[in-house]
């Protein structure tokens, strides 16, 4: 599992830190920052919960084999992405 975070989209709700404190943190400005971009497999459920709870789609999971699950797919309530090569990041679940 690989993740990326987008502090420009972050609105500081802190749900990621509560869900997966080993993976996410809030920086001095209160915005999301990742403690690791390749969370342990044991963190998978916690990371998924963080993605599900994030109100601003600031976390992306690049999860090889299951398509990718992320919150950035309904920016305008339409036009979902296909999940491949998102943001130019090569995705790999590892």
């Amino acid at each position: 599992m690989r993740i990326s975070v987008d502090s420009d989209r972050c609105v500081g709700a802190g749900q990621c830190v509560l869900s997966a404190p080993e993976v996410f943190d809030q920086d001095a400005e209160g915005l999301v920052t990742a403690l690791t971009f390749a969370p342990d497999p044991g963190e998978r459920d916690a990371v998924r919960q963080a993605v599900e709870l994030c109100p601003s789609h600031a976390i992306t999971v690049h999860d090889h084999g299951q398509g990718h699950s992320q919150g950035r797919d309904h920016d305008h309530g339409q036009g979902r992405e296909d999940g491949r090569g998102h943001d130019g990041v090569v995705v790999d679940d590892g």
Partner: peptide, 14 residues
């Protein structure tokens, strides 16, 4: 406005 206030309500601050 939101950005100015976010640091006041982080998980750590709370």
């Amino acid at each position: 406005f939101r950005k100015a206030l976010i640091p006041e309500f982080t998980v750590r601050r709370v």
